[in-house]
Write a protein that binds this DNA or RNA. Structure first.
Lengths: 207, 207, 207, 207
DNA sequence: TATGAATGAGGTTTCATTCAT
DNA sequence: GATGAATGAAACCTCATTCAT
């Protein structure tokens, strides 16, 4: 399409072997971009090959099927969510959500959809979906909860498990169903308007 | 599935013109079943034709494209959610959720996924998705909220809009991401473990 | 390739539906020609489509796979071998062989090879091979043998089963291994030079 | 299969240059095994490389094409058929057949088929086929015939050339068409039930 | 010399859609 | 109005062969 020239096409490690880690990342980038753009079914090896300036045969040499290429690319796209100890449960949760927000990538909405879609055809992807969509924040949030318990911060009558799921469920819904990009504003509404009244003994809003 | 008639290859109304409303419903049933089963992309006109015992050409005569057939079928599959006045906000919300739960159809998880998937290709489906997944309960819940406001039941510091979204967001996540069927138990956990502590001034749990 | 004109391409029932028996035969003719020409593995649906002036999709509508198309075409290519009663076993056998020879088709050598080749991949073809290559003459020959037995024509110490296989085995070998076309001369050598001394009590050579 | 060595991934001589005769034989063994297993067309260089633990590039360095590799391997797989002088023509022929039977290799049926198949694409293979399938026994048999002539053992009215072809043609047919392994029993039937009555003046059956 | 990697040119099969009856 | 049949345009995957190290 663009026959290169004065830059274009994204730099071009092409001709570099796929074993090269940078080249590999380049391919994964194409894969993730494509997945986000068109979803799992319309994602074609031809398109990947074209954009990555590789031949399909080359791709197939490294990843023996479309499914495996997709899985590999997604597996390497693990977001890192950290949750520092702020001293209060709600404060900790806010940090977890903000950390997740900071790691949010423009392609992530599309990738989530692709994952839901593809997981219907491929069991490996289904596993990935449960892991990835079901718990990215969850894990960090659980650590925060553990700390809260040790501190004796208890919220009686609260279903703690659901309370932890709550922020992610809301974010997910806004993103997937309502086509919104996740925003600091939404995180604040969730933390201040729901989590704080629900869990807080302190958890004041910082900054 | 087909409650048959006077025998033959599975009964049904095939050979009856598509203008006939019952025949129409029959076709939609096939469409919804297929969508739920395989999703939007693997849904093929051939399969519809086969299962509905019609010819593809006939289908195309009534619905000029795959997308339009899908949209038409989904539009006719509107769940009805009612919410009687129980006297308290939480009580009302519980009723709304139970009513939604009662209308839940085994195909609905699949249809939600199909909708997410297809809405990527077709703007009409995208609209449907926002409407359908974004607000089925919402509408009824909003009525309950209005009543609560009139009663002066106020939850200070609560983000009411998010609070209304919350139960559906959780249900959605459990259904779509964790592969669970929605259950009375989950509804109870949401109402008793989250909504009640959040909103309740009373809202006791009925039998 | 040849865009028709003043004849060419073999008549051209193309555009006629594949359900039409004559069109069907036309396709089979292309299939058999191709099989004979290039064998089973190099036989491609593309080539068939091109030569038969049909689209691949059309072919796939009628025959759901390459293997099934091949099997169908071969099944319709049954040679007819008759064996009149000449009064003597050797005379009868000669007739059977001559009848087989008369039905010989220039493509048959290629088809035999294709059958051997394809039968390695497809069990249906393997069955066909055993039937077709193992017994075309055999059946007629057995009838002749039965008559001989009724007449009391007995060849002591002869393995009759092998004796019946003998002419076909020799023809097969000359055809498959030595690239010869089967000929009247070869049949005569077999009958006069082997079968007669082996079986004959009379069996004079006619004409 | 691999009689191993000091451990490792299955032993073998991989990493040893292809110029080494033992390594060469090892590769040919892989080639023959593969040919017998899957035939000529499904025989892939990838598979050879894999099983022989060599790289395709290495193979291509020694044999410039698939066809040449196959030819080379087959050429080295010449069966040895001997035929001692037993004093009678039929006795000699039996020895020839038994010698051939003794040299029969489990892969040989597959190799014959592969040869028939491949000889359609490659003239070199076609030559090989005519030589290999057309005459393995023939040559030894001819020597026996020459001795018989010198002894004055004459079979009048017999087509001697065909008579010599006969046993091999029958064996070939049983092997290729009927999927039988060649057996002592079949050889005996051929010798005792056909050759003896046809040619014999003595030729008694030995132990 | 041996090899890891790349690739052009297919090969089978599928699908939304359109004709002709 | 209903249908059997046809089809162009992909999609996934494979293979003999060639480079570059």
């Amino acid at each position: 399409m663009d026959r290169g020239g004065h830059g274009g096409d994204g730099g071009g490690l092409h001709k570099v072997p796929l074993s090269n880690p940078e080249r590999r990342r380049e391919v994964f980038d194409v894969v993730l971009g494509l997945l986000a753009e068109v979803g799992y079914e319309r994602f074609t090896m031809d398109l990947v090959a074209q954009r990555a300036r590789a031949s399909k045969a080359t791709l197939y040499q490294r990843w023996p099927s479309k499914a495996e290429l997709v899985v590999a690319a997604l597996q390497e796209h693990q977001p890192v969510v950290t949750g520092p100890d702020t001293g209060s449960l709600v404060g900790d949760l806010r940090q977890v959500l903000l950390s997740w927000l900071a790691g949010w990538d423009a392609r992530d909405r599309g990738l989530m959809l692709a994952l839901l879609e593809g997981s219907r055809r491929d069991e490996e992807l289904a596993r990935l979906r449960r892991d990835r969509l079901g718990s990215p924040i969850r894990r960090a949030a659980e650590a925060a909860l553990a700390r809260a318990r040790r501190r004796g911060e208890i919220a009686p009558r609260i279903d703690e498990e659901l309370a932890l799921e709550l922020p992610f469920a809301l974010l997910l819904m806004h993103v997937l169903v309502l086509d919104e990009e996740p925003s600091r504003a939404l995180v604040d509404r969730i933390v201040d308007g729901l989590l704080t009244p629900l869990l807080s003994t302190s958890g004041e809003r910082p900054e």
